[in-house]
Design a protein around this nucleic acid. Structure first.
Length: 152
DNA sequence: GCCAACGTTGGC
DNA sequence: GCCAACGTTGGC
């Protein structure tokens, strides 16, 4: 059982979109970074906790909780020439990009990026690291406990 | 819109 | 395998 922070641009998929999706589940499409892909492929398990983070928006921060609800499987958008996530170098036989399904758990009042930075318990969070751009980052047990029990 | 940071690409 | 150029991310 592990914990993760997963970034999503709310214009594309917000916590409300997740809550309103069929089965309250969305496939996490569009990851095109090898490190993030490898986390999904090698380290994620069904039931892992997810901090749902809104990025590239007026109020970046943690908007809710979710849970990994599938193992990794090929991201269909890589095969779709009309998709912005199309990857001409990927093939059905050896798909380059994977995704997992994520299921809604809870929406919370936004914990802003600024608020996260205020807590010494969270200073080592990967998402707070200078220059961090990874869309999926591991969250420690201690960070998860602090956020879910003290901030949410 | 700016720009720092970082990943990827491709020539050599 | 190096590394410069380029593209993208994402906060501000």
């Amino acid at each position: 059982m592990r914990y993760w922070l997963m970034k999503s641009e709310p214009d594309e998929a917000s916590i409300d979109d997740l809550a309103g999706a069929p089965k309250r589940t969305l496939p996490w499409t569009g990851v095109r970074n090898y490190q993030a892909r490898n986390f999904m492929r090698d380290s994620m398990s069904i039931g892992d906790g997810v901090l749902f983070y809104h990025s590239s928006c007026p109020e970046p921060g943690i908007a809710g909780f979710a849970e990994v609800s599938s193992t990794a499987y090929p991201d269909p958008t890589q095969f779709d020439p009309k998709s912005p996530y199309y990857d001409p170098k990927s093939t059905q036989e050896t798909p380059r990009w994977l995704l997992v399904d994520v299921v809604f758990r809870k929406k919370i009042p936004l914990i802003s990026l600024a608020a996260l930075r205020e807590h010494t318990e969270l200073t080592d969070m990967r998402v707070l690291a200078r220059g961090n751009r990874l869309s999926i980052t591991p969250v420690t047990d201690a960070e998860w406990s602090f956020i879910t029990k003290q901030l949410a």
